[in-house]
Amino acid sequence: MKKRGKGIGISFYGTGYGNGFPDVSKAKLRLHDNGKIGIYVGATEVGQGAKTALLQIGAEILNLSTENLLFISEDTSLMPDSGTAAASRQTYNTGNAIKIACENFKDKLIEISKEELGLNSTHGLMVEKGEIYLEFFLQKRISFKELVNKYGDGTIEAEGEFIAQTVEMDPETGQGAPYWPYTFNACGVELEVDTLTGRVEILNVRFAQDVGRAVNPRLVEGQMDGGFAMALGYALFEDLNLVKGQIKSNKFSRYLIPTAMDMIDVEKILIEDPEPTAPYGAKGIGEPVMIPVAPAILNAIYDATGVRILELPVTPERLRKAMDTKKNEGNFNMELNALKR
């Protein structure tokens, strides 16, 4: 027999290293020979799209198309430290560092252009499309190329640094402001349980993700699909099968991650509510997109079958056993002698 059920999961996630630990991102900009601007930043592209999204932030501030920007993020001998590509922190932290560096760089260009154009003040000077010009007398203008020809490759440069604001928590009470910003989401899942085999089939998914602002909506969607798939594997399939410290499922024929046939189209909803301290309001979402999915699946399984699975993963065996005994599977007594001290 097939039984259907629906479930919801909602979550919040605090970005960054947190707990008052200095969460620093640095970025450096340099004007290069061809008039292109190099953004030097230690933000790793792990597939999430950091290069593209961070480049977009830089391009927006510099009023340039991305083709006129270089992104140097691979070689420690070239770029400053921007922290790890983790904790969903690159868009927020390094995005901010790039924003600050770009603004400093613009100031620098304007300062130099004032001299070059023989002006009394920087007032009215604009930076756009590879040029610096006086907005009310357009004949006063100088291009990036002209500047670099005069000053030399890579000599006009500026830096930016961003440190996220968090407060270390009290060791006894845990009071403090450990992370910032927080990101929110909600996921709804409808599924079907085969009561004979204990197999679960996802039928319908709606997934809303707070993004602050989406720097690149398509990249966000890609993260949401990927996060859903990873959580699906977490909830239903993946098991290292640990026996006395040994990973028995140490290959892909045993450690089962979802295939294209196990995945489903996800109705993805991006919620934009810009975060004031973030670059253009953008928050990191790489991790959050995984978080509400598994609990939504578990709640839907309960809705369908009337049994609670308290232990992951929900293998067909575990689910079938729970349905047979009408007992919540995995509800063990936690006798913690160690904790009573």
């Binding site: 927080y182 929110f184 989401n185 709606r206 809303a208 707070d210 602050g212 109705e267 509510d273 975060e275």
Partner: peptide, 16 residues
């Protein structure tokens, strides 16, 4: 600032 959780849940529930 920026706590649009209610909106997230509403959008999910809306279609389900």
């Amino acid at each position: 600032e920026s706590v649009p959780l209610e909106e997230c849940l509403e959008k999910v529930v809306e279609g389900m």
